[in-house]
Amino acid sequence: MMGVVRILLARLAQAGFVAVLVGTVGFALMHSLPGDPAFRIAAERYGPDMVDAAAAEAVRAELGLDGPVLPRLLRWLGRVITLNLGHSLVSGAPVLPELLDHLAHTAMLAAMALALALPLGLPLGVLAGLRPGGAVDRVVLLGAVLLRAVPPYALGLALMVVFALHLGWLPPAGFESPAAILLPALTLALGVAALGGRVARDAVMAVEASPFLRFARWKGLSEAAVVRRHGLRNASIPVVAVLGLQFAALLEGAVVVESLFSWPGLGHALVHAIFARDVPMVQGAALALGLGFVLLNALADALAALLDPRRARGTL
């Protein structure tokens, strides 16, 4: 248990480092983008038809965009410690509540995607791993390659046409009914299931071929006990590690899917904020994503350490 605590403390220190790094890099990147931020902010606020040099100048004066850059960054870093992420340059509303709302939507989407991906990918991966080169393995490989190769935008549109238009089972987009989460979640889930299935297959294969499994069988354990005590637990370690990373990737990879399905999540908000040069919003979103990544990594590490105590003791 002490090992798990040590891992979590290390991750906490990492989180502080990530916050400073992500905030600074996000700030620097936003200021190095071509184009005039005053025009972009004005276009997002008032619509592109209302934007001319006068509107842009008004925005520049209101937000002090001409001022020195470094003090603005230092002010932001100082405020982050008190959880004050500033105000959006576009809407004027505080960033934090807006961000939490988007984050909740994205987390919901990612969790639903994972919930759909696990029962789809893992059983097929295990079946494929038990008979490498068999019919199931080859069909699953083909399916996984196809699903990973199709861009999420095209996959999402195809699912929309099938499930919303032809079958009429699911709403195609929006966030008005609870069922609206299913199609974007499925779009993300298919990609995760493909990867998770492949990892599960390789892990099962490796465990199947391992000396400790042969020894377990040799010493006379029943097949069920072999799989339960030695097979599943060992095979699940790489799967947990990969799925942890995948969940974090889902939070970020939802950008395209969220836009396509009009899902009011963090990815969608981040893209809008980048277009609008809404620096506090971009920094806040990047911070949330960075910390989310650290948190999920920490959870995956902790889970792996519980599954395999040698990791926590540092003997592996």
Partner: peptide
Amino acid sequence: ALYLATGQGETRAVMVESGEA
């Protein structure tokens, strides 16, 4: 009535086709 901002043109088309909008 309900107004929903939906950025993607393809999505708007499918929403009205499926009866969601």
